[in-house]
Amino acid sequence: MELLVAACVGVMVACGVYLILRARTFPVVLGLTLFSFGVNIFLFSTGRLHTNLPAIISSTQPAYADPLPQALVLTAIVIGFAMIAFVVVLALRAHGELDTDHVDGERKKDLP
């Protein structure tokens, strides 16, 4: 199971990085999102993987998943959302002001 999760994280990070390195703003935004998905699972996994042990106190449950990374990831998800929303709008604004969606705001490579 660990191997599968690690592979998933690896693929998400790799795809995210590849997209981040593209020349247009929108793929970069997609890449940042994908990267942050991967990083969130990474952070989440630091509490190790648990099946059917939600961290909700009850008398019938013998053990619990580590709640702390979950709380951290929740914070990270929300902050990530704020950041992605900002970058999306920034990309929009840049497109409007620079009249191209190239990350460097140049038109010269603007050919299909």
């Binding site: 981040i20 940042l32 990267f35 900002f86 970058v87 920034l90 604004r93 840049a94 002001e97």
Partner: peptide, 15 residues
């Protein structure tokens, strides 16, 4: 906007 965009995106990767 361009400078700000670079700055923001780099720091997002950094975060």
């Amino acid at each position: 906007t361009r400078a700000g965009m670079h700055y923001a995106m780099l720091n997002l990767i950094g975060s």
